[in-house]
Simulated assay, not measured.
Amino acid sequence: MKLKALLVAGSLVLAALGLTLTNAQGTTQNQTIAQIVATNPNFSTLLSALKAAGLEETLSGPGPFTVFAPTNAAFAKIPKADLDKLLANKQELTKVLTYHVVAGRVPSSQVVNLKEAKTVEGRSITIEVKDGKVILNGNSTVTTVDIQARNGIIHVIDTVLMPK
């Protein structure tokens, strides 16, 4: 009897978690990429950069876009003086940010089969799968995949991609 009660309770917890995850995903699907970035505290540096470059409106547009979105921790890997300099140079900042965007909706199921992807900036990023992880340009790991937005998809990365 005790085992049956535990199984029922466990099932209810799993069902509740499933509903929460589904509802959270449904919430992001109604938002644009820019709105998701604006409401996620892990992307506050990315949001500041998008505003400084004047790209927030673009990522609110129809798309579709695939964005490899660096977290605050990814930006923190850049020395502060270099990051400040980048944020103050709209042309260079735009280059770096558009290097994180691929035209179209590219889910993780497709990303893992690619060797490279051409970015909106014009250059390609390299893609490889090592030990089950997706690595971009040999140094940036995709940590979260397939965050669905109304106008595209976000894959979270742990290192800012710099065009060469």
Rank of each mutant, 00 (worst) to 15 (best):
E128F: 11
K77S: 08
E56D: 15
K51V: 12
L83W: 10
K133W: 07
T119W: 13
F68P: 00
G132N: 11
V142K: 02
A103S: 15
A53D: 00
A53M: 05
G138H: 02
E92D: 13
D84W: 05
D84E: 15
K80Q: 15
I135L: 06
V145C: 05
E56L: 14
T98Y: 10
K90L: 13
A73C: 06
N89R: 14
R123D: 10
V112A: 11
L87R: 07
S108R: 02
F75C: 03
N139Y: 15
I125V: 15
K118F: 07
L136R: 01
S124H: 10
T94A: 12
P107G: 04
Y99F: 08
P62V: 10
Y99N: 04
I135H: 06
G63P: 03
D146F: 00
E92L: 12
T143A: 04
T144L: 10
T66R: 00
T66L: 01
V145L: 01
P64K: 07
P64F: 03
E121Y: 10
D146G: 03
A73L: 09
I127C: 06
I127M: 02
K118M: 14
K80A: 14
V120P: 04
G54E: 07
P79A: 07
A81S: 12
A74T: 04
A73F: 06
G132E: 03
L87P: 03
T71V: 05
N89Q: 13
E128W: 05
E116A: 13
V120Y: 01
A49R: 11
V129P: 08
S48Q: 15
V134F: 02
R105Y: 09
V120G: 00
V145T: 09
N72F: 04
G132P: 03
K51R: 13
N72C: 02
K51W: 03
L114S: 08
S124R: 08
T141F: 03
A49S: 08
G138W: 04
I125M: 12
L83G: 11
T143M: 05
T119I: 13
N139R: 15
Y99H: 01
G104S: 05
I135C: 07
Q91S: 15
F68E: 00
N89H: 09
E128A: 14
E56N: 12
K115M: 05
S140D: 02
A69G: 08
F75P: 01
P70L: 09
E121V: 12
Y99T: 00
N113L: 11
S60I: 02
S48L: 02
G132S: 09
T144H: 04
R105T: 08
A117K: 02
T143S: 02
V102W: 01
S48K: 14
V145D: 03
L114K: 09
V102Q: 03
T58D: 06
G138C: 01
K90S: 14
F68I: 04
A49W: 07
F68N: 07
L50T: 12
G63Q: 03
E121Q: 15
A73T: 11
N139T: 14
F65A: 02
A52D: 15
V106A: 05
V112P: 12
D131R: 09
A49M: 12
T144K: 07
N139W: 13
P79T: 11
V106Y: 06
R123I: 01
S108I: 01
K95W: 05
T94E: 10
D82I: 00
I127Q: 06
L97P: 03
T58H: 08
L97G: 08
F65P: 00
S109T: 15
